[in-house]
Design a binder for these strands. Sequence first.
DNA 1: GTCGTGACCATCC
DNA 2: AGGATGGCCACGA
Length: 108
Amino acid sequence: MKDTDNFFDKVYEIARLIPFGRVTSYGAIASYLGAAKSARMVGWAMNNSHHQPTSVPAHRVVNRKGLLTGKHHFEGTNLMQQLLESEGIVVVENQIQDFERVFWNPIE
DNA sequence: GTCGTGACCATCC
DNA sequence: AGGATGGCCACGA
């Protein structure tokens, strides 16, 4: 049992806990983990999410500005955006509208 | 074992 | 107010 696994595992766990029609930010997750400055690691975790046995809704995780930074990492180009729109989230130009409204705080 | 990079955020100048 | 850099930790070669 490595400590690092806890960090990654926590990220995956939170990502799966994101309710329908809600999104969260890397910083929020990192902050919840007690590593607000390690938001990059959250992104790395998402990158490795493909390595995980479980599917992680990384499309529900965006940056602080509500920008779909990692949409380029998804299969297509607008797959991430379509998934979000499919959940009722409005996304324009890779940017989530009413981000504060759909923002979900992991601490809650 | 070392260097570089990575889906970011915050702070400094 | 805006741009640039650091920091954080882990993984890949």
